[in-house]
């Protein structure tokens, strides 16, 4: 399967949910997905299109567009194509279904995206902070408008 046929198959199967799909090169594809159906899309990707490897999942904050994007980078062991799939969420209340039932390794990625961006994953088996201390939850430090950086210059700056 090459990149073009993968994108074609994906848009044919989910005409409602997949938009802005594009083939960037022979090995790179991008697509946007409606947040409600991300689990179904992921299941189809894994079962039918042999995208078996969720390489990464993270968030991007766009304060001026008032959006948070969750990006899934999904690779495959069968073919050389990598898919960058994005789900656009509202910044005030970012909620999306967890893809842990499909890709089990999304567990920690989602916990990290939760603690750094505040994206709430519905049906996540264990949604709590990953590495941040517990009392920093709610600060969402990787959002662009985060104000909690040390505001006094370090005294001993060398």
């Amino acid at each position: 399967m090459d990149a073009r046929s993968i994108i074609a198959s994906l848009t044919d199967r989910f005409p409602e949910d997949i938009y802005d799909a594009d083939v960037e090169s022979d090995i790179r594809t991008v697509a946007k997905v409606k947040p409600e159906n991300v689990v179904d899309v992921c299941r189809y990707l894994k079962d039918e299109l042999s995208f078996g490897h969720l390489c990464c999942e993270f968030g991007i904050d766009y304060p001026d567009r008032n959006e948070i994007e969750v990006v899934y980078t999904i690779g495959s062991y069968e073919h050389p194509v990598v898919l960058n799939m994005k789900a656009v969420l509202p910044r005030d209340d970012p909620q999306i279904r967890s893809v842990v039932p499909v890709y089990w390794n999304a567990n920690w990625y989602e916990r990290e995206t939760y603690e750094l961006f505040g994206v709430e994953y519905i049906d996540h088996p264990n949604l709590k902070q990953l590495v941040l201390p517990e009392d920093m939850l709610g600060e969402w430090p990787l959002r662009k408008d985060y104000k909690g950086y040390p505001n006094k210059t370090a005294k001993n700056l060398v």
């Binding site: 941040l132 920093m136 430090p141 040390p150 006094k152 370090a154 005294k155 001993n156 700056l157």
Partner: peptide
């Protein structure tokens, strides 16, 4: 340890440990 070094304006480091 002295000032935060490369991480001196990070959200997760503690400054001025002295």
């Amino acid at each position: 340890a002295i000032s935060g070094g490369p991480f001196y304006e990070s959200y997760s480091t503690h400054q001025n440990i002295d």
